[in-house]
Design a protein around this nucleic acid. Structure first.
Lengths: 153, 153
DNA sequence: TAGTCTAGTCTAATATCGAAACTAGAAGAG
DNA sequence: CTCTTCTAGTTTCGATATTAGACTAGACTA
């Protein structure tokens, strides 16, 4: 969709968005994190056009966020599984999900919950905390530009 | 970019993306979090086309993520400032930035740092933690679909 | 072995985006 | 007070992305 590349920006946010590719990609990742692995799973869950899904999956594989592997269950069809890079996008997904739950919840309530896999209990929210676990207020958090000499060598 | 609306999906991630609007919006928010308030600040910092910027700002205002207010310094030009909704997107931005720093860092190194506003010290990363502050492994974190009756009344 | 499912590809229509040129009002220089 | 520049847009138009739908080759199913 974007027609301009962010990859030459030095900002990590821009560079991450460039890798992810598009909105659809994030929803594909959401499904992948909830266990989807096959083309048809994504297709049905998202209601996305097949050609678009093909393209988005290929691009995520290209970015090494997903990996295409032979099916674990012996099926002839490949599966798309998260790489470590991909799994580490979880904080982004969790943060997005959390914001949506709070500010734009669906009338029927949220549809996803983030839990401790072992106990099934809901996790506390993802939010800035100090090393010792203490929660921070947003006005205590600063985002700062790092100054840097234009040349390096 | 997308031509299909996510707003009828019940998923909070989809609904959040719908509100945010586009990649550019996230970069606008990044700049807003770093102190940008005026049209020209965003324009220069992002290298974005003016019409696109106009549209994105309008849409963020519409989504109540930004608010358009008279300039604090008496200038005739309005300023765009984050609302609470907008400020609460910080965890998303931080998570994106962090992932980029780790996986797709610019050759010159990252350009942004997240700090404790009071001390100037870098904050620990945004990552799933238990209530007591203990860090979790990603494989301990589950994302689960909440089952729900299709009707409500 | 016929029929169906999966995972695509291809084409054409449509929606969206962005670059460049243009503009009205504000600010600044002399 | 007048000329020029700056700001914050709007308009036009071409480039790009997304979609629906038709088509296909190889698996699977009865």
């Amino acid at each position: 969709m974007k027609t301009k590349s962010f990859s030459d920006m030095q900002c990590s946010i821009a560079r991450t968005l460039e890798q992810v590719g598009s909105w659809w990609s994030l929803l594909i990742l959401r499904d992948a994190m909830m266990g989807a692995r096959r083309f048809k799973h994504f297709e049905r869950s998202l209601g996305i056009a097949k050609n678009t899904l093909t393209k988005r999956l290929a691009q995520l594989v290209d970015a090494e966020i997903l990996e295409r592997v032979a099916a674990a269950d012996g099926s002839a069809y490949d599966e798309y599984v998260l790489t470590e890079r991909g799994r580490e996008l979880a904080p982004v997904m969790i943060a997005l999900s959390q914001w949506g739950d709070k500010w734009v919840a669906h009338p029927n309530g949220p549809s996803t919950e983030i839990v401790d896999g072992a106990t099934g209990e809901r996790l506390p929210k993802i939010w800035p905390r100090r090393e010792n676990g203490e929660w921070m207020e947003l006005n205590e958090v600063g985002m700062r530009q790092i100054e840097r000499a234009p040349e390096k060598d």
